[in-house]
């Protein structure tokens, strides 16, 4: 197992390098955008003298590399800096935004796993028959609809026409758990595409596994149907699905901008959107660090799960 441990260590080291690269890239890109926080703050009175004053007050007149260096030193002490526009610490932005995002992601994943795997196994079990064709064509159709379009459609039908659900989470703040009805539409939209991609991957893997000689052997030795499907075929079919699941969780945690904006949910996506609009570089960079770390950790986790599911493949970094 020492091979596995050194693999994890190498991957984490590589992950740190990747996160640093992401942060540098984000910093360079926000620098490259026209205008800065001072221009955004000056708002309706774009008086050059006023902008210069704000710039001096925010230390934006210092060279870019010095600002980056300051921020990086702070980061090493666990300090993500303060927002340029409000002066609040970046960490409070992240803490506030993470709650709703995590809630949405947790609910989505909790529903996604049984739905995606269940549909995939179901379709594979009846491969080529009516159930399979129904599941496969519906998932393909739903997958083809972009989230914003599905979101707007659901709001129009379920909220505005039928008035069953609140159209957005406006006014509920970060206390979304107290208003579960507001969560239904966003979770539905978030679920729609991942369920389709996951179930199609599971179906493909299961079709292969169910046709394999080892499943035939389990059947001929009298192992029951459900046990063959879930204990013998599914483990061999899981490896690609595990990778896809990790990417989906990553996508959910790293601020689902479109859905959060559509349903006005104050999650990380909304924080990111506002920070970019206000050229609030420290907040954007803080988010980049969090997203980078999340991506690295989730993908490493998926690789370890895959290694467990396909022990023969070994590990490579």
């Amino acid at each position: 197992m020492s091979g596995l441990r050194s693999f994890v260590a190498r991957r984490l080291l590589l992950g740190v390098a990747q996160t640093v690269a992401v942060v540098l890239l984000v910093f360079a890109l926000t620098e490259a955008l026209p205008g800065d926080a001072a221009v955004a703050l000056a708002g309706d009175q774009p008086d050059p003298a006023r902008i210069a004053a704000i710039r001096a007050a925010l230390h934006l007149d210092r060279p870019a590399h010095e600002r980056l260096a300051d921020w990086a030193v702070g980061l090493l002490h666990g300090d993500l800096g303060t927002s340029l526009t409000s002066g609040r610490p970046v960490s409070t932005y992240l803490a506030d935004g993470f709650g709703p995002t995590l809630l949405l992601a947790a609910i989505t994943v909790a529903l996604l796993v049984p739905a995606g795997f269940g549909l995939g196994v179901l379709a594979a079990r009846y491969e080529g028959r009516l159930v399979d064709r129904l599941v496969s064509s519906v998932t393909l159709a739903v997958y083809a609809v972009p989230e914003f379009a599905l979101g707007v459609l659901l709001v129009t039908v379920l909220a505005l026409r039928l008035d069953w659900l609140p159209p957005t989470a406006v006014g509920y703040g970060t206390d979304l758990l107290g208003h579960p009805a507001a969560l239904v539409l966003p979770v539905l939209v978030l679920l729609s595409r991942p369920v389709c991609s996951l179930s199609r991957l599971v179906r493909a893997g299961m079709v292969d596994a169910l046709a394999s000689p080892y499943v035939a052997q389990a059947r001929r030795y009298g192992v029951s149907g459900a046990k063959v499907r879930y204990a013998h075929a599914l483990p061999a079919a899981l490896a690609p699905a595990a990778q896809q699941l990790a990417r989906t969780i990553d996508w959910l945690l790293c601020g689902v901008v479109v859905v959060e904006a559509l349903y006005v949910i104050p999650g990380l996506g909304t924080v990111l959107l506002n920070a970019v609009a206000e050229r609030d570089v420290p907040v954007v960079q803080g988010l980049a660090v969090v997203f980078g770390v999340l991506t690295v950790v989730l993908n490493l986790g998926a690789d370890l799960v895959t290694h467990r599911l396909v022990p023969r493949a070994g590990v490579a970094a």
């Binding site: 394999s212 000689p213 080892y214 499943v215 035939a216 052997q217 389990a218 001929r220 030795y221 009298g222 192992v223 046990k227 204990a231 013998h232 483990p235 061999a236 899981l238 490896a239 599911l309 396909v310 022990p311 023969r312």
Partner: peptide, 28 residues
């Protein structure tokens, strides 16, 4: 009726330990 195929590896599940099918047979 038992079956021993030409390639025994083909009927052993690569994702499960050797004990998997043996235990299932014994359990029944």
């Amino acid at each position: 009726v038992g079956y021993i195929p030409q390639h025994p590896a083909a009927v052993l599940n690569p994702a499960r330990r050797v004990s998997a099918l043996l235990t299932d047979i014994a359990r029944s």
